[in-house]
Amino acid sequence: MRYRSASRALACVTATLAAALLSPAAGGASASVPWHLAAIDAPASWAESTGEGVVVAVVDSGVDADHPDLAGAVLPGRSYVDLDPGDEPRLLALGSEPGPVYERAFGQADPVGHGTAVAGLIAAGADSGHPGVAPDAEILPVRVLDDENRYHDSAMVGAAVEWAVDNGADIVNLSLGGHYDSAPFAEAIAYAEANDVLVVACTGNQRLDEPAEEVWFPARVPDVLAVTGTDDRGSRWRTAVTGEETDLAAPGADLLAPEPGGGHRTVTGTSFASALVSGAAALVRSAHPDWTAAEVRRAMIATARAGGEGLGAGMVDAAAAVAADLASLPPVEVPAEASPAVGLAATTAGGALLGLAALLLRGGRVPRTRYWTARRLAAREATPAPGA
């Protein structure tokens, strides 16, 4: 097995566009629907679904839980950063005094801004002026990216994914990746699939002056919904990586997103295209709670609007996916052999995967924790009690 270098294990943000990621947005907020929401037809689905009841894990650089756009939407998460190898994340007891250490321990602080932008594009509130694709979804922040927006241990990221699965995630967004495969990370992807959790990941970014790169890991794993980025004309963004593993496309350039501290920035990269697709997936899962993760993935790919070269099935269409009828969709071809995610994981953890296989056969599911946040509590209080 090859291990990726630290220099290649990073968020899906093109190096040449790092300045754009952190540059202030010009002109402030627009009163109209943001172009990226219109491009994926998200507003047309809101009468039927807003993502309520769906938890999206943002495995990233943390999330600023105090940003007004995300008020009440950010669950207590977990941080895997600043730990000695092999240590468990140092969580503080519930009821501890809030503060920087407390917030970082639960993934509710973001020194980079990447995770906050991703979370806002997914689930910023409808009344914020900058709504996310699924404004009533909730965010489970799991921090794996350090203060330089990198991760140095793929096994750690795999552990973070497994923790998210065990703690309520319905969707896992991975706006990160690298060039080399990782058996522990692949095992975590297989674990998510076994527990009916949809994994969405960005295809990666590259410099304009470099040869075309292959789709990054873990996006190239077949069980992952791999997302590349487009510009405002619907063409592939010039630095967005693509390949035969690409499933869908979404806007990935010049998007207005929240930044830590309460403001907004213009962001560019397939990281943010992945966030939009995760938001669309939350709409579908909320509208069809009886659908499996595989069925959600199937519906989103089948209803995509065909586009130009390198966009996979095309631009994700949130409204069409929400309105989809599974019975009318084309069947998905299932290969006879196991997927690379399962195969790679089985190489190093065969016994564990046999246990997962048994779990699948008996229809089991790992018990998962649900947290009550301001949004969920408000919805609960607004719902009349039986007989009321």
Score class of each variant (00 low, 15 high):
residue 375 R to Q: 14
residue 388 A to P: 12
residue 384 P to K: 11
residue 235 S to T: 04
residue 150 R to T: 00
residue 332 V to I: 03
residue 347 T to M: 08
residue 205 N to M: 02
residue 114 H to W: 02
residue 73 A to F: 12
residue 99 G to F: 11
residue 314 G to S: 07
residue 149 N to G: 03
residue 187 E to M: 07
residue 217 F to Y: 07
residue 387 G to T: 05
residue 374 A to L: 13
residue 331 P to D: 04
residue 113 G to W: 02
residue 203 T to I: 04
residue 124 A to P: 09
residue 158 G to R: 00
residue 120 G to L: 03
residue 78 R to C: 15
residue 289 P to S: 08
residue 250 A to H: 01
residue 34 P to C: 02
residue 81 V to F: 13
residue 199 V to N: 04
residue 274 S to G: 13
residue 215 V to K: 06
residue 51 G to W: 00
residue 278 S to V: 12
residue 362 R to M: 15
residue 190 A to C: 15
residue 16 T to K: 15
residue 204 G to S: 13
residue 361 L to F: 08
residue 96 S to W: 10
residue 96 S to T: 12
residue 13 V to N: 10
residue 18 A to E: 12
residue 283 L to T: 09
residue 33 V to H: 06
residue 281 A to Q: 05
residue 19 A to K: 12
residue 183 A to M: 09
residue 174 L to W: 01
residue 111 P to D: 06
residue 150 R to E: 04
residue 86 G to P: 07
residue 203 T to F: 10
residue 162 E to D: 02
residue 110 D to G: 06
residue 296 V to G: 01
residue 356 L to S: 02
residue 286 S to A: 09
residue 184 P to W: 04
residue 28 G to C: 01
residue 322 V to P: 05
residue 193 E to C: 00
residue 228 T to Y: 04
residue 8 R to N: 15
residue 209 D to E: 15
residue 189 I to E: 03
residue 90 R to P: 14
residue 37 L to R: 00
residue 133 V to G: 09
residue 80 Y to V: 09
residue 293 A to W: 03
residue 365 R to V: 14
residue 141 P to K: 10
residue 123 A to G: 13
residue 260 P to W: 10
residue 138 E to T: 07
residue 178 G to N: 09
residue 96 S to A: 13
residue 121 L to F: 08
residue 365 R to Q: 12
residue 286 S to K: 08
residue 262 G to N: 12
residue 227 V to T: 08
residue 211 P to M: 01
residue 280 A to Q: 10
residue 326 L to Y: 11
residue 160 A to V: 04
residue 42 A to V: 05
residue 311 L to W: 02
residue 47 A to G: 14
residue 28 G to A: 08
residue 319 A to P: 11
residue 272 F to K: 10
residue 305 R to N: 07
residue 2 R to K: 15
residue 195 N to R: 07
residue 236 R to Y: 00
residue 207 R to P: 11
residue 146 D to T: 06
residue 112 V to C: 00
residue 126 A to L: 09
